[in-house]
Design a protein around this nucleic acid. Structure first.
Lengths: 351, 351
DNA sequence: CTGAAAGCGCTTACAG
DNA sequence: CTGAAAGCGCTTACAG
């Protein structure tokens, strides 16, 4: 099946390519009705479909963006991508999805190829390990936006959770109910990965603010596959915690797996607060008190920001946007008798 | 920042564009060492990055494919996409992800634009409502593969779960343990959506095969938002089921939400088997007996098949591939004392 | 071993 | 109101 081009249409309709092109781009300003009709008919008869690639080459826009995420299997990433895709679809853009798996080399390969393919911009959950490339894009004024993580020292717009606040909320929810021995478990690499670093920091500060001492052994940052053991260690301490903050969804899975296997009762034996609200937190026995992040708003904002850059509307300096976490009180810790009413305490997102 | 092109490199290196192009495509056969060096250096000095678009226009391949899924938020879709993306990445392809939301118009728009952008092929979870476009692509020999669903009467390669077998397994797991009053709940539109249609069919046949009568009221196929009510209806029946098959992950969420709210005890009051194994099925109290589908293998196979078509290796007729579901026995139904050993009964996927 | 020329399928001033 | 021409940034026979 030979592909039919604009030249074929022009011939068939007895007009020039230019005119057909005008038609396609809806520049009817000075177009005779019958010319329109002729072209319309030629297109119909030949089953012509414009080649977007050729147009992109000329117009220097592919109406396509790239998203480089750590791993699309994480619920948060999926939700962010969904929001981005929705936004893009409304603007007739497409999104190329890439999984960098926290691997700097993969990330670099994706960034390079995506740009070679002339995507109009890239949204990245950065590994943080390709500073040179990030910088190069910045220098070229190539539209990029970071999500979930930022890279210190780089002037890139970033969409982040207020992670300090998230762990503060978690700690406070415990202390408010009389807990003092609060552990924290989350995946490895807190130096590199913004949310992990900040959540640990926020935890520490909140502990201090509550007049509690920080026991370094109470903080377990480790590979997911070692978490069962980390939990063993944590609970075998001479003075073990009676409360645990699951630093993200992966950590929560591991904690629940552990408590189930060891028949540790929540909240009687152990109180739990999870950062990242997963769909089943509400269905669990007991329902898990969580700190939710507004994934959809964050994704939408990222897309919005990228579009501003693409359209050069925002030549202002790069900014960091912090989104508010939301505490969803459920039943995974024992409530002390206290003055405050029971129920959902929320703080609305600002963006 | 003016973008630097192959012409600039040629000038800078003192050679022709053709030679630079040869270099870029690693056709060194007859290239003098010093020519290579000169070009290499010019590229380095200018920070040249080839424009893939221009190449694609000429070579008629974008090394990009499209995936049109119903909704990336569904765990199954996410897993399939992850597998596809992995496969593509290994072959230096990219994937554009689209959410059709079971909306035929959205699907059509995506199909059209994706082709206009000259993607090399498309993997679709079809709505089934764009037969004309599907047919057109087929006629043009445009590479497409269907996943999860197929469209009757269309000769398109499709990757499907053996849905009949999945519900048969679910029914048998119940009957084997003495259950006879088995309900089925799943989302609406069983006429259109293959897995739903087939799961109902498989359920009916398995009931018959077990000598059980089919009570139409036991089958609830309804919008997700009406499922709570459907469950009410189901359990308010004069002779209500004591076992329910959740026809997919969404249905399972609704069932668990319902049982939790109504304080219905699983498995004492109600036995549950879920089709689609969700990550938390294993963590739930009680752990949910599930029929898993091999999402990753299915995604990989879809990508593999599409690549065969793209490379014209597979000009043979279109085929339907059925993947084997796997029964994972857990604790959401009461086991009768019986001869078979307890434990995980699996049937391996074949592909 | 390397270069000139044509071409991929469009768009866009510009001329008439 | 419409067309001829140049150009987007590459690749690819072909000639020398």
């Amino acid at each position: 099946m030979k592909t039919v081009t604009i030249t074929d249409v022009a011939k068939h309709a007895g007009v020039s390519k230019s005119t057909v092109s005008q038609y396609l781009n809806k520049r009817y300003d000075y177009m005779a009705e019958k010319t329109k009709k002729k072209i319309e008919q030629a297109i119909e008869e030949l089953g012509y479909q414009p080649n977007f690639l050729a147009r992109s080459l000329k117009q220097k826009s592919t109406t396509t963006i790239g998203v480089i995420t750590a791993n699309i299997l994480h619920v948060f990433s999926t939700q962010v991508i969904r929001a981005i895709e929705d936004f893009c679809n409304q603007h007739d853009f497409h999104v190329i999805v890439c999984n960098a798996d926290d691997d700097a080399e993969k990330e670099k390969k994706y960034m390079d190829m995506l740009r070679a393919k002339q995507v109009d911009g890239i949204i990245i959950f950065p590994t943080g390990d390709n500073v040179e490339t990030y910088n190069q894009m910045l220098k070229e004024n190539y539209p990029i936006v970071f999500v979930d993580r930022y890279v210190p020292g780089l002037e890139v717009s970033a969409i982040l959770l207020d992670n300090m606040k998230a762990s503060t909320m978690a700690v406070n929810e415990f202390t408010r109910n009389g807990y003092e021995k609060i552990g924290l478990i989350l995946p490895e690499n807190p130096e590199l990965i913004t949310p992990r670093r900040e959540r640990i920091l926020g935890y520490k500060e909140a502990m201090k603010a509550n007049g509690l001492t920080i026991n370094p052994e109470y903080i377990q940052s480790t590979e997911v596959k070692n978490m069962q053991q980390a939990l063993d260690t944590l609970l075998a301490l001479p003075d073990p915690p009676n409360a645990i903050i699951a630093g993200n969804d992966l950590a929560l899975y591991e904690v629940l797996k552990y408590t189930k296997e060891k028949e540790i009762h929540i909240p009687k034996d152990l109180g739990i607060v999870a950062i990242d609200d997963v769909p089943f937190a509400n269905l669990y026995y007991p329902a898990i008190t969580s700190i939710a992040q507004p994934a959809f708003e964050m994704g939408t904002k990222a897309a919005y920001l990228l579009f501003e850059k693409i359209n050069k509307q925002n030549t202002s300096s790069e900014e960091v946007f912090r989104f508010e976490p939301e505490l969803i009180v459920r039943s995974s810790l024992i409530e002390s008798t206290r003055n405050e009413g029971k129920g959902v305490v929320t703080s609305e997102g600002n963006n």
